[in-house]
Nucleic acid binder design. Sequence first.
DNA 1: TGCCATGTTAAACT
DNA 2: GAGTTTAACATGGC
Length: 244
Amino acid sequence: MPEGPSIILMKESLQPFTGHQVTEASGNAKFEKEPLIGQTLREIRTFGKQTYLVLDNTAIRIHLLMFGSYSIDEQTKPDKSLRLSIHFKTGSIYFYTCSVKSVELEFLSGIDWEADVMSDIWNPEKAEKKLKSKPEMMVCDALMDQDIFSGVGNIIKNEVLFRIGVQPESKIGNLPAKKLKELIAEARNYSFEFLEWKREFVLKKHWLVHTKTTCPKCGQKLVKKQTGLGKRRSFYCEKDQKLY
DNA sequence: TGCCATGTTAAACT
DNA sequence: GAGTTTAACATGGC
């Protein structure tokens, strides 16, 4: 569920509730829910893996973390895992096992929206500048850096690196200029393919290396290893992905 | 059944 | 105080 493209799908599902007034709110999220009642859901904004429900006086920040989920109109899980439910005259939305916070509206203006790979205003030049300022960083950590590639998660990381033929532990500073541009372009490009496959429920079958054991190009056994400062698992082919 | 994982934050260390 | 490591969160798939 939780990488950037999945969050776009969540936003699309929630979209019909914009313009409607909150009639009730409950759940075990640690903030006062009464003030939400009577406010109108003005807008739903996403930033990487985060979703902001923008109301009149406040915004609700939702992050699904690893196992979070949501449902619409139907409460599908036991009460105890319900973080937040928001009810409207036209229906209800439910969020489970996720991080939910109430933030000031001003908080939204502090976000670097151009860092979101799924955004219309995604700024590849800016990403390039950020990357160039961190030459010692490994590419696997760089792709997972939410200040640079907001929305990219571990699956996207592995698939992007395979596609551009770069070994996850390569240093940013060692990449030729052309490869660096490829990295940035593919991070966005793959995220949109991910979105469409996810939409059609065929995402998994399009994975080339993630959770796989053999390289689809050469048939050699893939390496599975925890890489980078993030120590997240990487799947890569030693022959087809070059260590820079 | 038990382990592991699409993620982040904060506490507990050095 | 900085930087690093560990734990907590808590569900679902294999």
